[in-house]
């Protein structure tokens, strides 16, 4: 199976997964029990029986944003690591030592982030 054939197969499979999932929901939509009369309480937002207190779309604590920032750093690192891991054998010692140096610098950055408290979840 060539690379392009493999991608065609992967694309087709994505379609298969989608159709199977959609089919289940369509079957449920056809079979489901419908209420005889509409009551307002049925479709009200669930808040443990109380009247909902305002909408839910509120602002959030910035610590979530901080996690996303740190994630970007280490995700970009993964982009460098993946091709390196495949070609480690063919490139040899240069690849090994330069990547170890890169990882060491990254680890220093991690120590800095820990000391700054950027990774503390309060």
């Amino acid at each position: 199976m060539s690379a392009s054939e493999a991608w065609i197969a992967a694309g087709t499979f994505t379609g298969v997964a989608f159709v199977i999932a959609a089919g289940t929901l369509i079957a449920a939509a056809l079979l489901r029990v419908r209420a005889r009369k509409h009551s307002e309480a049925r479709t009200r937002t669930y808040e443990c029986g109380e009247e909902p207190d305002g909408g839910a779309w509120v602002r959030f604590h910035p610590r979530y944003y901080l996690v996303a920032l740190v994630f970007v750093i280490f995700d970009v690192e993964a982009v460098f690591l993946l091709p390196w891991a495949v070609s480690l054998r063919s490139v040899g010692a240069v690849a090994l030592w330069s990547m170890l140096a890169f990882l060491a610098i990254l680890l220093l950055g991690w120590v800095y982030a820990v000391k700054k408290g950027a990774l503390r979840w309060v």
Binding site: A28, L31, V33, T43, T45, Y46
Partner: peptide, 13 residues
């Protein structure tokens, strides 16, 4: 059971 349960979408969703 899951297939025949009523399907509720909240008003504000």
């Amino acid at each position: 059971k899951l297939l025949i349960k009523a399907d509720i979408t909240p008003d504000t969703a």
